[in-house]
Amino acid sequence: MAEVRVHKVNTAGSASEVADVTAREEPLEIRVEGRSVAVVMRTPGHDEELASGFLVSEGVVQKPRDILEVSQCPSTNNEHGNIVDVLLGGAVVNWESLTRHVFSASSCGLCGKTSIESVFQQFPAVKGEWQVSPKQRDLLPLDRHILLVSGRVSFEIIQKALAGGIPLVAAISAPSSLAVDFAQEAGQTLVGFLRGETMNVYTHPQRLKTAP
């Protein structure tokens, strides 16, 4: 878990800053014999088992002895995630087929990336002067929209919103720790637990106005 500070807001106009926690989310780059094959998003822990299971699901290995070792790679210039390298015990890898299948089978858009650096794409931060008012209706163009999410907010959702210039993302459930960090850095307002008459504002609360 990761500790964060949030602004709890209700429809009566009251707001208070309190401590909260979010589920930790970080990318894991999986390498096979030094070659990057995929990046998956996960809660850190049991990375060796995750990498092994990934290779089983992709058909790279069939038996336990096909994997000699799964090791953590030392951090280089990347501070956002972790890297594991899998040493195989004689299994023959069709690299072209493996990477092509990972890209085509990925529905999340991140798991098809083959390095952590490619996950953290660079987009300009959103402008900070726009504010959301209860009286606003016409929010065109896209940078005048808000994005409403029916579940939890992952890093990828925040990144896609930023790519479209969307300054505010709101969800009925909780954001991950990486989503909060990314939204804070990108200048986006991130709202969670938008239910009934209350909500938690995790980043950039200055963009919200309460009803008079």
Results as ranks from 00 to 15, higher is better:
residue 53 G to R: 10
residue 45 G to N: 08
residue 57 S to N: 14
residue 22 T to F: 05
residue 66 D to T: 04
residue 16 S to Y: 06
residue 27 P to Q: 07
residue 79 E to P: 08
residue 85 D to F: 05
residue 27 P to M: 04
residue 25 E to R: 07
residue 68 L to H: 11
residue 57 S to H: 11
residue 86 V to D: 01
residue 41 M to N: 08
residue 66 D to F: 03
residue 56 V to I: 12
residue 37 V to D: 02
residue 83 I to Q: 10
residue 77 N to Y: 13
residue 27 P to A: 04
residue 78 N to C: 08
residue 86 V to P: 02
residue 41 M to Y: 01
residue 40 V to P: 03
residue 35 R to T: 14
residue 23 A to P: 07
residue 60 V to P: 00
residue 72 Q to T: 10
residue 23 A to F: 09
residue 55 L to N: 04
residue 37 V to G: 00
residue 33 E to K: 07
residue 75 S to G: 07
residue 87 L to Y: 11
residue 34 G to V: 08
residue 86 V to G: 05
residue 85 D to V: 06
residue 19 A to K: 14
residue 68 L to W: 04
residue 46 H to Q: 13
residue 41 M to A: 09
residue 49 E to T: 04
residue 56 V to W: 08
residue 72 Q to I: 05
residue 64 P to Q: 03
residue 25 E to M: 11
residue 46 H to L: 13
residue 16 S to E: 15
residue 49 E to C: 01
residue 69 E to T: 05
residue 75 S to P: 07
residue 70 V to H: 03
residue 16 S to G: 10
residue 74 P to S: 13
residue 43 T to S: 12
residue 30 I to P: 02
residue 73 C to W: 09
residue 41 M to W: 02
residue 53 G to D: 11
residue 32 V to H: 00
residue 85 D to R: 08
residue 78 N to L: 09
residue 23 A to W: 05
residue 42 R to F: 08
residue 82 N to G: 10
residue 47 D to R: 12
residue 65 R to L: 09
residue 55 L to Q: 05
residue 29 E to C: 09
residue 25 E to D: 10
